[in-house]
Each structure stands twice: as C-alpha cells, then as structure tokens.
Design a protein around this nucleic acid. Structure first.
Lengths: 200, 200
DNA sequence: GGTGCCATGTAACGCGTTACATGATTAT
DNA sequence: ATAATCATGTAACGCGTTACATGGCACC
C-alpha cells in the first residue's frame, strides 16, 4: 500500500500528472537503491485511486507540449493520507533468499553450502565496494536523501558480512563435531583437518 | 520465485504433500521472523509447478488418515532447482516504508518529521528488546536456523537504530541553517562550525 | 460437545514486473 | 536523420494476502 500512499502524499502537495509523480517518487526515495518504481505501476495505481474517489482527474493539459492528465487529491484522499502518516511503520524483516538457499543446500545436499556462502560473501563485498564509491562521490549539499539511503544500505551490508562470518563459524563448529564424543580430542586445533569439504 | 524453488528443493529430498511442504518450509526459514508463508500459497504454487511439469502428482494416500495428495519432483524440476541453487543471490535493498514516510512528512509538511522519527525509534527498540529475549531463550542445540535468523534480525535492528541517530543529526544540522547565503561568506571553511556534535 | 490439529482447496484483490505499443517534442 | 526525453497506457503473469469453505480425526 506504500506506492498508493506515496502518490497521495505527492498529490497532497499539489496536483500533478503521472509522469511527474514518477519523477517525484524517484527523487524522494528512488533509484535502484531502495525503491525502483516503474511507470506502469504509477498509472495503474492512479487509476485505482481515481476509482475509489481518493483522487480526481482535474484537467487535461496540452499547451504546445504533449497531453497531460492532471490529478488532484480529494478530501477522502487526504484523510487516508493523514491516517497513514500517523500510523507507525511496523518492522518488516527482510525475506532472505540467501538464507533460504543456504538452508536448502544443507538440507538437500545438492550443492556445497560452502560455495553458497563463498558466493554470497563475494557478492556482498562487491556491492559494499560499489556503494562506498558512490557514497564518496555524492554532493553532500544537494542529494541528502540519497546519502541517507546509501548510509543505510552500507550499514546493512556491513551487518550482513559480519553475520556471514558468524554463521560460517557456527556451521564449522557443527561440522567439526557430529560425533557424540566431545572428550576424545582436546579442542586445541586439530591440524586444520578441513579435508572433507562435504563431498560433492 | 523463491517459494517455488523452495518447494522444488523440498521435493528434491523426497515426495511430499502440501501440508508437509508448508511445515517443512516453516521449519527451514519460517515463522513471522523472516518468511511467513501461508498454506494457500503452497497449494497454488504447487498447482502451477504441476502445470509446468516440474512436479507430478504421484499418489493419493489415504491410510486411515485424511486424504493426502503426494507430489514428486520431475527431471525438469530438478534441473531448474540445480540452476537456481547455483545462481548467486543478488542483493536486494529493502524498500523502506519508514524512509518513505519520513521523506513525505518533510516534503508535505502534513506531519512533524520529528514525531515520525520518534515513533520509529520506539518501535525499533521494542522489536530489538523482544528479539533479544527470544534470542536468550532458544535452545542452542536444536534451533540452529532460528538462532541465525534472530542474529541477523538483531544486527539489522541495531544498524537501523544507529542509522536513525545519523539521519536525525543530519536533519538537525539542516534545520539549524536554512539561510540561502552561499556568497556572503567565502567558501574557505567557515570556522569549522561542527560545534553541535549532532545533538542527542 | 468443543477445541485444535490435519488436510485440502477457491475467489478476489492488490502489488509489482515485463513486454508491448503509441505518439509528440527537443537536441545533436 | 535519429536519439533522447516527455507522456501515456494495456495485457499478461507471478507473488502474496485475506476471506471463505470443507471435512476427518483426536483429545478433553
């Protein structure tokens, strides 16, 4: 329901047409970083809002330029907007496809979990590197929202890398003792017997 | 496409019926934490997989108990599974509804951004508190995947709290100097006015 | 008799993506 | 010329949720 409410918010400022809404959305929270909304969704959502009477088509402008369908918010729309703004955002935990894949690789044995982790670490480092460079090159005055989005993405990537280390260590611990004999060998590092590497 | 592939993965282990798949999915990555899949989706996805020939309905069991439609993976299904497991997971940045709301509150002036931040911080602390307690009470031996999911969620919450502090400081900085006078003062570093140290 | 678990679905809806399609103006 | 940008959409599909519906079995 967020795009819907975002459109109401932007129309709350002033009437606009679809293309303009798309541009405004991108400017506020946009880009591939964070929220990459497609024009098609803007137009379909706008239609649905109009059906519900939350916005109205106000005019059809065409002063020399191309045709523009201009929409405005209605009182009902403004009510819904205010309600949404006042409501707290409930935390959503990201559905982690990597974790799913890792668990399935462990459960099915079709693929080496070590490889899945390795690939993920490489991918996270790459992404972190890219974003760090972008972060260093933004204009600190003008692109405030971009800076904030980059900061968050970078912090999450760093957290994910630390987390990867943790789960790898945890899996190693398990793999090192599937035997019910925790007393046979002293823990002090057996000559790095990482020989097996899980088969396939 | 993840639920779809997860089902293939679970059927790759052995044939199962829908209810069993739902339970297995929940056990592997499940719960409200991370990935809360509904039975309805399992059944509809299963139908679609069957249409495509990636799984087949193998039998209809009914030994005293309720009716069970048992599905098995096909060779085509296994191919798709292996492809998916081998492919790297591309990083997805979470679409942040809080940030959207914050930006809209700034842009529209309908709601005080300070309140939005305040509410978000309270919500994050609450969630962090809940998860920390859960984390302290899991059985470290049996519920490995749950521990890992909790760790990740906690680390992300901590990152979000630090990030909230950062953006709040940044917004305070701006609010303290909205004067449009870039030429009155020479560019050469006005006496390092970083006095505030971000407020809170 | 009721509650809860096992087991199965269908219908309707909104979100979101991809592909396709049209046409005007503006800049190179 | 032609490429980019402005501007608008439709169709089809998959994902995901909610609501609704059915029925058996076990346990208290």
């Amino acid at each position: 329901m967020s795009v819907r409410n975002a459109l109401l918010g932007l129309l709350g400022q002033r009437p606009r047409h679809g293309y303009e809404l798309h541009a405004a959305f991108e400017a506020v929270v946009g880009g591939k970083l964070n929220w990459d909304v497609k024009p098609a969704q803007i137009y379909t959502t706008l239609s649905r809002l109009a059906e519900r009477g939350l916005v109205v088509e106000k005019a059809l402008e065409q002063a020399g330029g191309p045709e523009k369908r201009i929409f405005a918010i209605t009182p009902e729309g403004r009510n819904e907007l205010l309600e949404w703004l006042a409501a707290p955002v409930k935390t959503e935990h990201q559905r982690d496809k990597f974790f799913l894949k890792l668990m399935l690789s462990l459960a099915t044995g079709e693929v080496d979990p070590g490889l899945v982790i390795y690939a993920q670490r490489a991918s996270l480092y790459q992404e972190l590197h890219d974003l760090t460079i972008q972060r260093e090159n933004v204009d600190p005055a003008s692109e405030l929202s971009r800076i904030m989005m980059l900061d968050r993405a970078i912090m999450h990537l760093e957290a994910d890398l630390r987390w990867l280390d943790m789960i790898e260590a945890r899996l190693d611990d398990i793999r090192r003792q599937p035997l019910p004999e925790p007393k046979a060998r002293p823990r002090g590092r057996p000559p790095k017997t990482k020989n097996d590497s899980s088969g396939r």
